[in-house]
């Protein structure tokens, strides 16, 4: 008889990091296609530059530090993709390059690579770009849905619905527009239905669970409903859920394995915390949108949440 002595975990799945990362990237394709259709080839180039620089930076640093090159696992690709999705379609081409480099070099590799980063690298890159070049990062263009005019890029600037709300101007966008993505915004965040399609795929595959997205979106909905601009319990909650980067953030970035809590209880706390911070920034803060800051702040408090939501040892 042969006994095998090995480390836990003993129950093994067929899932690998590589498989999960590429599946998440795959699930983001519909949102990307929608963004490209709305904003033209410019958006496609931004996505390409963002992902390419991310992968290149990862390989470059790993060669430099004589580590094993892990660009095949797709995590750098995913970071670059998410960063590009979080950029306005009108940014100059060096913005995704600088942002991806910052994300991978200072958001991930400096901490020791995959699994060691304290915050979501893509969001860190976005916040870096937002703080450094606010001029480019807050200029949005009007979507121009046209299958035949793919190469026509007309830059009619249009504010996002949330910034219109902040300035108390008429918004002029219906819920259907918001749902389909016919509004000013970042490349990957506009088309809600495409994002939900991707999220559904991940949920069916059980790569993500609903705890964080549901509590996150729910908290934003309830909070903005209670503290409406025209009095208590009169807020436009549906508008807040559908606008900005909430859906993209809640399903694809708050659920990042490395930077979100491990237990169900912890994930619920995480989601509610994200929701409260997002709503507070949107309603009373200086910025029109707060999803990236909310997720980053909760990323930083993840070790604390994990410490207080340790699951009980069975039998104790």
């Amino acid at each position: 008889m042969k006994f095998i002595v090995s480390h836990s975990p003993h129950i093994q799945k067929k899932e690998t990091i590589q498989k999960i990362m590429w599946s998440v990237s795959f699930s983001l394709i519909p949102a990307g296609i929608a963004g490209i259709l709305f904003f033209g080839y410019h958006a496609l180039l931004i996505i390409f530059l963002g992902t390419f620089t991310a992968v290149f930076t990862e390989a470059f640093i790993q060669i430099l530090t004589r580590q094993k090159i892990t660009i095949k696992d797709g995590s750098a690709f995913l970071t670059g993709l998410l960063l590009a999705y979080n950029l306005p379609p009108s940014v100059p081409f060096w913005i995704p390059i600088v942002g991806s480099f910052f994300s991978i070099a200072l958001g991930k590799q400096i901490f020791g690579g995959l699994g060691q980063n304290i915050v979501n690298p893509a969001l860190l890159g976005r916040v870096f770009l937002l703080a450094s070049w606010p001029k480019y990062m807050t200029t949005f263009v009007k979507p121009n849905f046209n299958l035949f005019n793919f190469f026509k890029f007309d830059a009619i600037t249009a504010p996002t619905p949330l910034s219109l709300l902040k300035e108390a101007k008429p918004i002029g966008v219906t819920y259907l527009d918001l749902f389909l993505g016919n509004r000013g915004g970042c490349i990957g965040e506009v088309c809600i239905i495409a994002l939900l399609l991707g999220a559904l795929y991940l949920l069916i595959k059980k790569y993500i669970y609903l705890y964080i997205p549901l509590t996150y979106i729910g908290t934003v909905g309830i909070f903005t409903y209670i503290f409406g601009p025209s009095g208590f319990f009169k807020g436009d909650w549906l508008f807040h859920i559908l606008s900005g980067g909430l859906i993209l953030g809640a399903f694809f970035m708050a659920t990042d394995y490395v930077t979100s809590p491990l237990t169900t209880k912890g994930q619920i706390i995480f989601g509610i915390g994200c929701g409260i911070i997002t709503s507070v920034i949107r309603l009373w803060g200086g910025y029109p949108e707060g999803v990236s800051y909310a997720i980053l702040i909760m990323n930083l408090s993840t070790p604390l949440i994990d410490r207080y939501t340790k699951s009980k040892i069975f039998g104790k």
Partner: peptide, 14 residues
């Protein structure tokens, strides 16, 4: 185009 973040306090820490 200056990286404005670096002239902020967080840039100093970085």
């Amino acid at each position: 185009e200056p990286i404005f973040l670096l002239s902020l306090p967080s840039g100093a820490l970085l």
